[in-house]
């Protein structure tokens, strides 16, 4: 893994390199090791899914990529540059609905990061925001306040807000986990449609095997206590509506076996 100067990332070089990263965080009583020397390379236009049960450090890893937590060992590089702090080149979509700022309308919420980060020319902000909102199907709701929207709509706005910034990589921290099953399913399909259109690069954290297979081009399977990567799997062969196919089911079983088998060992 050689250093690059970060100017031009040719397809052969990773967009994001996670290199031997150990993460620790302190609670009131103790220091917890969330991940232990995890490594992976992510390339441009990847739909990269971090999959694992709760406690495997996948969300902590995502926060570290977001710049909120520095590794105690190893480093994370975006286009060859070491990540040191949070920044709008790595827009995050969170699980919680309150990620939309309640004092701003949908439009203001989408414009807000462009304004604070000084991204794009001032005159383009509103047009870009409206286009992004229209893309997630909420064109009628530009002037609505977040509290009047449903959970699914709020998550759509959060996705629009992140995509409008055209980030180098889109970070998604279980964005659909708090939605009802029907909405969740529709949101997954919409996200794939958006990807087909824009081809953004994203890292998506989930604990649902099915969601991982549906969304991913590549799946990183993680095991808990402390978080380690047990496998990195290709999932490009699964398209939209294949969740019932034999191959899907056997892939599901394979991952399930990895997680379940490991858990038994970990629990003794």
């Amino acid at each position: 893994m050689q250093q690059t100067n970060g100017r031009n990332t040719s397809p052969s070089e990773p967009l994001l390199a996670v290199d031997g990263v150990t993460l620790q965080y302190a609670t009131r009583q103790q220091i917890v090791t969330a991940t232990h020397r995890v490594s992976f390379d992510m390339y441009e236009h990847d739909r990269f899914v971090l999959l694992g049960p709760s406690g495997c450090g996948k969300s902590t890893l995502l926060k570290s990529i977001g710049g909120f937590l520095s590794p105690v060992e190893g480093e994370i590089r975006l286009k060859g540059q070491r990540i040191a702090r949070p920044g709008p080149d790595r827009m995050i979509v969170f699980q919680e609905f309150d990620q939309l700022l309640p004092w701003q309308t949908v439009l203001q919420n989408v414009v807000f990061p462009m304004r604070t980060a000084g991204r794009f020319a001032r005159g383009e902000w509103e047009d870009r925001a409206r286009a992004a909102i229209a893309k997630v199907g909420l064109g009628k709701f530009v002037d609505a306040y977040p509290h009047t929207l449903s959970g699914g709509m709020k998550q759509r706005v959060a996705i629009a807000r992140a995509l409008a910034m055209e980030p180098a990589v889109l970070l998604m921290d279980e964005p659909f986990a708090a939605l009802d099953a029907l909405t969740r399913r529709r949101m997954q399909e919409e996200l794939l449609d958006l990807w087909a259109e824009i081809r953004f690069s994203m890292i998506f954290v989930t604990h649902s095997i099915e969601e991982a297979i549906l969304l991913a081009s590549r799946i990183v399977v993680m095991t808990p206590h402390p978080g380690q990567i047990i496998a990195e799997l290709d999932a490009t062969r699964f398209a939209h509506d294949q969740s019932g196919s034999d191959e899907f089911v056997s892939f599901h079983k394979q991952i399930n076996g990895m997680l379940f088998g490991q858990q038994k060992v970990a629990n003794g």
């Binding site: 709008p88 995050i92 919680e96 700022l101 604070t116």
Partner: peptide, 25 residues
């Protein structure tokens, strides 16, 4: 915590963070 992280995600810190995130929130 989410709204704090949203603010920092946009690169806000110091007085800007207080005025644009903490005060309205």
């Amino acid at each position: 915590q989410t709204q704090r992280m949203v603010g920092r995600n946009y690169g806000l810190k110091g007085v800007g963070f207080v005025l644009r995130i903490l005060v309205p929130a």
